[in-house]
Nucleic acid binder design. Structure first.
Lengths: 114, 114
DNA sequence: GACATATTCAACCATCCGGTTGACGATCGC
DNA sequence: GCGATCGTCAACCGGATGGTTGAATATGTC
């Protein structure tokens, strides 16, 4: 794998996929359950999950007829670490964190969970 | 601006653009000088700079006939802060930082600066 | 075995993306 | 004013992306 960062950032560039990651942060989920809040087809969600898996951001494991999706934080960490190479970002600014999580939440509900 | 993060991550998803950001980290640069190390046309670099500017990652200022490009760290910070919403990433792991910066550098030279 | 559920595959479509080339608009030096 | 330099614009091209629908594959249940 010669350029691991590009697929990671590309995967993060879609609000649906970021919403999926947020959901998986809470708990592992079956594909059907991941798809439930969105208004697009199950096949579309399946493709999004494939993109996330290709980027290494999630893994999928079949248990019975259900496939469980699980967050794989290492890939995200790689991207996070690359960003910190740009220095000057104080590790965590809680005010900014709060503001941006709010923004993200509002965007997700506007665009993906009507 | 309803979804600031998507254009930022999309901008970061291209190794040429990440290389440009790294160059601008050192110093402000004219468009022509940004383009010099790459083997693609000036117009292509100009488009990359437009993508970075649209994402808020850089700003451009005309001085005489030269346009100076300058890093705008706030946008990158927004993305970085979003990532830290996924918690569990110790602020800076210097070993990982070094490894990934090396990887990034090698990738850039393979793909963009032959 | 028959049927229902969970997920992916395949084909298709519209749009976006990254690159090219050539023309164009500004600005500098003479 | 003229020619050279800096940078963008416009049109084009091939390939990726994000979505759809319908068929196919697995697995669990009866």
């Amino acid at each position: 794998m010669s350029d691991p960062l590009s697929p990671i950032f590309a995967a993060l560039a879609d609000p649906t996929r970021r919403a999926i990651l947020s959901m998986l942060l809470e708990d592992d989920m079956a594909v059907t359950d991941v798809a439930e809040p969105f208004q697009m087809s199950l096949a579309a969600i399946s493709k999004h999950l494939q993109v996330l898996a290709d980027a290494g951001l999630i893994s999928r494991e079949r248990r019975g007829r259900v496939i469980w999706c699980k967050l794989e934080p290492d890939a995200l960490k790689a991207a996070s670490v690359w960003m910190q190479g740009f220095g000057q970002f104080e590790p965590v600014d809680l005010d900014a964190l709060e503001r941006f999580l709010e923004t993200e939440l509002r965007d997700d509900s506007d665009e993906d969970v009507p």
